Amino acid sequence: MRDDTWADEAEAAARLVGYGFRPKHTPARDETYRLLVKRYHEDPDFAHLVKRCAAGMGLKVVGVSTRSGMVHAALPGSVFETKMDQFVRQVRMREQREAERVLYGITHLAIAVLAFPRREDLADDGYVGKVRASEVTQYVRSVCDLLAERAASVDQEDDPPAEAPELERAWRVYLKRPEVAPTRKGNRGLSATRTITTRALTYLFDRGMLTQQGVDPERSERLYRTTHRYQMQVRELAATRAYEELLTLGVLPPVTDTDGLRTINPDTLYD
């Protein structure tokens, strides 16, 4: 009779990796999931097998916890990798795809930085970030304005050099777009920066990275809160060059203890 012990181990490891593709499904709602997470933390050999199983699928295990379950990210070249041009296709942007790729990229980056404006917030598992579409849109535009001012002060040409920092190459694209750009039917146009921000937030919400906390009656817009799953993903993002550039620009709004980010004054960037 064949010994299926090894096969059972491999199947259990693959099942745990598979749970990572169900971002809104948590161990608290599934006893099998909970036991696999528990085993991952208590059995080093099983944890190693899970990581190797994920690697074979082109995935990196970002974290495993009872709160968020399995969180993994696609390795470069993986079939599961969602590049920014693929994301643009998913949100049905058919024209100016290269420009949209840049705009959505910088918007996603801004959401991450605004959600966790301090490194201690990113390191604190109990911290919950808060973002609104208007804050993200205004922050990105403020950053672009600052970069434009810096470029003008050194008489920089319209086209930045290839070795320029990532944000230096992106702000020109963003500033050319209107915030609203209404259509004939009164809706926001697809190219409007506010539409880009809303779609980026919706994308993260649909993947269990953000939760929605109703509509703020005073601002008439939805408030999003970060999940632990998103926090773990942003920790990976924090190692990128562009994320570091945003943090060092010095234009992050202050943070309060009661309501997350305060509104940025369009003239001073602060209240």
Rank of each mutant, 00 (worst) to 15 (best):
144 C>Y: 00
258 T>H: 07
72 H>A: 12
17 V>T: 04
195 T>W: 07
75 L>M: 15
240 T>Q: 09
186 G>D: 09
115 A>G: 04
68 S>C: 12
127 Y>T: 04
61 V>N: 00
269 L>H: 09
216 D>H: 08
252 L>Y: 00
6 W>M: 10
162 A>T: 10
112 A>N: 04
38 K>A: 12
41 H>E: 08
213 Q>R: 14
188 R>I: 14
76 P>W: 06
224 Y>W: 09
241 R>C: 13
127 Y>V: 09
232 M>K: 01
251 V>W: 01
177 R>T: 04
28 A>D: 07
131 V>D: 02
174 Y>N: 03
166 E>A: 11
119 R>K: 11
37 V>D: 01
86 Q>L: 12
256 T>L: 10
256 T>C: 14
157 E>P: 03
250 G>T: 04
188 R>D: 14
259 D>S: 11
211 T>D: 05
233 Q>Y: 13
52 R>F: 12
104 Y>A: 03
229 R>S: 01
33 Y>W: 04
247 L>S: 03
160 P>Y: 04
167 L>K: 00
187 N>I: 07
117 P>R: 09
27 P>R: 02
102 V>A: 07
82 T>V: 14
216 D>V: 08
83 K>G: 12
253 P>E: 06
19 Y>I: 04
27 P>Y: 03
208 G>Y: 00
21 F>K: 10
253 P>Y: 05
45 D>Y: 15
232 M>H: 03
81 E>R: 14
58 G>S: 06
124 D>W: 14
199 R>V: 05
186 G>T: 11
256 T>Y: 05
178 P>R: 15
182 P>F: 08
264 I>L: 12
81 E>Q: 15
49 L>V: 05
172 R>F: 04
